[in-house]
Amino acid sequence: MEQKLFEDQHLTPNEKTIADFIAKMGMTVLTYTEDEIAKSLQISNATVSRFWRKIGFKNFKDYKNNYKETMDISPANKLGNIMEQVSSTTIHAQMMTMSVKHLELTLAQYNAEDFQKAVQSIVKAKTIYIYSPGPSEGLGNLLNYRLSRFGFNIQVLPKSGHEIYESMLHFGYGDVLFMFGFVKLHPESRVLLEHAKKLNMKSIVITDSIVSDFNMLADLLLFASRGELWEFHSMMAPTFLIENIIIAVGKETAEQSMMKLEMLDSIRKEYKDLLPR
């Protein structure tokens, strides 16, 4: 795409400056606004706005959408992008700023009613089936570990393949499907959600997409920001959301949860000489 910008021989000096800036910035330019580009180059906003039409796009948004469709979004490119943005001497401060941004975006989309419905669904569930594919596996393990301690019956679903069918065999009314649906709706996710809906099972999806195919299939969607499609995906906000769910469920089932934790403590003390921590 960048080469196309330089092939236009009718660009003014200022437009060539913009084209050069975009070519050098690569994917990072997608994080900019027109105003930021204008200020960075000390060029008027009007010149920047006209530039997109000059190179064949309706506006900056149209350029961004086209870029996203044609870009190579590989793990290597996403890691390379974050490495270009942070400095080794200030990495902690920069990553903290990014984490705060993700938490703020997550809270901006927070729906207290949906969150409480998700908590109540978990509290009332006969069995909670957790589907946490790919990078969300750690989140699923955290949820499983904490809720199991409270005495809930948890089943972690296989990631893919025909083994999923074996687990679906045990789905039933009163159960809950808890799923992590990042980026897009995969075939396994669709199968699980559609089958849960047929059985009138509640389904809860934590997603990083405000508008996606999950909206049509899941009963409850909880948003957690992880960054744009081309960015290094942070798990800070999803972890924050999971910990909030765990604490809320613990409060709703305080008597049962405390009893189970006290039993755990008693068992540890009884066998501490044989299995020291």
Rank of each mutant, 00 (worst) to 15 (best):
M1V: 06
E2V: 08
K4D: 13
L5I: 02
E7P: 01
E7C: 09
E7V: 00
D8Y: 07
N14A: 12
I18W: 00
A19T: 02
A23I: 00
K24L: 11
G26W: 00
E34A: 10
E34G: 14
D35W: 04
E36N: 09
S40I: 01
S44G: 11
T47E: 09
F51S: 06
K54F: 01
K54Q: 07
Y67Q: 03
Y67I: 00
K68S: 12
K68G: 07
T70L: 07
M71W: 08
I73F: 05
G80M: 05
I82M: 07
V86K: 03
S87Q: 11
M95C: 11
M96V: 09
A108H: 08
Q109E: 15
Q109G: 02
D114H: 13
Q116L: 05
T127A: 08
Y129T: 06
I130G: 10
Y131P: 11
Y131K: 07
E137K: 14
N144C: 09
N144F: 10
Y145S: 08
L147K: 02
S148V: 07
I154L: 14
Q155Y: 06
V156T: 15
E163Y: 14
I164D: 01
M168N: 07
H170F: 13
F171A: 09
F171D: 09
G172N: 10
G174D: 08
V183A: 13
L185H: 01
E188W: 02
V191F: 02
E194K: 14
E194H: 10
H195Y: 10
I204Q: 03
V205Q: 04
T207G: 04
T207Q: 04
D208F: 01
D208V: 03
V211F: 13
D219T: 08
L221K: 14
W230D: 09
F232Y: 15
I242Q: 04
I247R: 15
E252N: 13
M259E: 13
M259N: 13
K260I: 03
L261S: 00
M263Y: 12
I267C: 08
L274F: 12
